[in-house]
Simulated assay, not measured.
Amino acid sequence: MALSRAARLAPVVDMAEKAEKTAVQRLGYFQGQVKVAESKLADLNAFRLDYSQQWIVRGSTGVTGQWLLGFQGFLAQLDTAVDQQRQSLQWHQNNLDKARDAWQQAFARVEGLRKLVQRYRDEAQRAEDKREQKLLDELSQRLPRHEAF
């Protein structure tokens, strides 16, 4: 009876394992997306820093008003791009957090089901051991006893 309970749970365990595998894949995907977003943000920040350094170099030799307006305009565009990339990174991190939570739940479900199946198997084994012991006890009682003289 208990073994059949474990056997009946096998499809449920398989489904839970597949869901956990899918959750792992999603987690990996979002980890990759976060790394890409972090890299883009780092590149933008580095480019902005390099571009800002031009002000120091060009400013020491004198600049025209037109150059200064162009510089400030492009710097504002870079700032906007950096802000947008930060938002993108935050969005990807939120997705990663959700994917991590989903994976943890799927993993916990699989582990819980595996423990339940193992408990059912252990119960079935104990019942089988008890049945065998009872059978052996009955057989040993039926055997003729030889008394020593």
Rank of each mutant, 00 (worst) to 15 (best):
T61L: 13
G62T: 14
G62F: 13
G62V: 14
G62A: 13
G62S: 13
G62D: 11
V63K: 09
V63S: 11
V63I: 15
T64C: 10
T64R: 11
T64I: 12
G65C: 12
Q66N: 12
Q66R: 14
Q66W: 11
W67C: 10
W67M: 13
L68M: 11
L69T: 09
L69H: 09
L69R: 14
L69S: 13
L69E: 07
G70M: 04
G70K: 05
F71W: 09
F71S: 02
F71Q: 03
F71T: 04
G73E: 03
G73A: 03
G73W: 01
G73S: 06
F74P: 01
F74M: 06
L75M: 10
L75C: 02
L75N: 06
L75H: 04
A76R: 07
Q77E: 10
Q77F: 06
Q77D: 08
Q77L: 07
L78I: 05
L78P: 00
D79I: 07
D79M: 05
D79Y: 05
T80L: 06
T80A: 08
T80P: 00
T80C: 03
T80S: 07
T80Q: 06
T80H: 03
A81D: 03
A81P: 00
A81C: 03
A81S: 06
V82K: 01
V82C: 04
V82R: 01
V82G: 02
V82H: 03
V82Q: 01
D83G: 12
D83T: 14
Q84C: 06
Q84F: 08
Q84L: 10
Q84K: 11
Q84E: 10
Q85R: 08
Q85T: 15
Q85F: 13
Q85C: 10
R86D: 01
R86Q: 10
R86H: 05
R86L: 02
R86S: 05
Q87R: 11
Q87I: 08
Q87C: 06
S88L: 09
S88T: 15
S88W: 06
S88F: 07
L89C: 00
L89K: 02
Q90D: 06
Q90W: 01
Q90Y: 02
W91M: 08
W91F: 12
H92C: 05
H92F: 08
Q93G: 00
Q93D: 04
N94Y: 13
N94Q: 15
N94I: 15
L96M: 07
L96F: 06
L96I: 02
D97C: 00
K98N: 11
K98V: 07
A99Y: 00
A99H: 00
A99T: 00
R100G: 14
R100C: 13
R100P: 07
